[in-house]
Design a binder for these strands. Structure first.
Ligand code: FES
Ligand code: FES
Lengths: 134, 134
DNA sequence: GGAAAATACGACCGATTTTATCCGATTTTA
DNA sequence: TAAAATCGGATAAAATCGGTCGTATTTTCC
């Protein structure tokens, strides 16, 4: 409950790795998966997502790999989450999917108060960058 | 992802209901489940947990039901979560279950940075009370 | 005393989500 | 041309969660 998904964890670990090494050095998914003991195929897909979101730059072919596309201080945690998960992290489903999704929407009395906590978390993800986790 | 469980939602809704009405009036699980359109059996189980944690007082038998055991301002959100969920809400499993649970524990580089966000959320749950959601 | 109404408790199923794997295709360099 | 890497979809395995059921116990009311 209230847990980050493995995909996001793996993504953050990978991004931290990129940020910790020289900018111009490409890293392959295999390297990272071995170094951090992460399932290779799964990490590969996460990196693809990050690549599509222009957070990292991909180079195909032999001697290919990935490099950060921006400075670590420019990459917000929220960017990473949005790139990997297609729906934003929400305390209650009603926020994410709208009134139709929740059967007790009209009778719900805690949606508004929960918003305070939600906002707080959002702000944190929006403020913190990869540079702060190196 | 990063979502509260239904059990906690239902628990909060029920507690808010208790806080909103007269202190000495007992409410049955059935009443609340009908009013807020919540599955009766599931809510009943949640209320049992809250009763065991001394957050609400139970009265058995016909004309029985539940009443708040303390003033709403004395009931913290974290108390409610702890009562309903046996393990605390944690961004990453490594916090909750210790080193043995996470295969990448030794290689993990994001555990410590994540702690900042974790602490922030914990503080919020520890500060906010039922009185603030009435 | 017995029936009804409520909580108490535990076991269980089913659906959904999440995690992980697999395979084939494409790109690029050696 | 072969090897090494990214791509992308499909699929399988696992875990979690919401919800249900059945039974026991307690208490009040008739
Ligand atoms: S829990 Fe869905 S609207 Fe509040
Ligand atoms: S993800 Fe488990 S230790 Fe970091």
């Amino acid at each position: 409950m209230l847990r980050l998904s493995k995909r996001v964890e793996y993504g953050l670990i990978a991004l931290r790795h990129f940020a910790a090494i020289n900018d111009s050095t490409v890293c392959t998914a295999k390297e990272i998966s071995q170094k951090y003991n992460i399932p290779h195929e799964l990490l590969a897909k996460v990196l693809q997502k990050l690549s599509q979101a222009r957070i990292i730059q991909s180079y195909q072919g032999v001697r290919g790999g990935y490099v950060l596309a921006h400075a670590p201080s420019k990459i917000k945690i929220s960017d990473v989450i949005n790139a990997i998960e297609h729906e934003k992290p929400m305390l209650a489903e009603c926020y994410a999917d709208g009134p139709a999704s929740c059967i007790i929407f009209d009778d719900c009395t805690i949606r508004r108060p929960l918003g305070k906590i939600q906002k707080n978390i959002n702000d944190f993800f929006h403020t913190m960058t990869i540079a702060e986790i190196v």
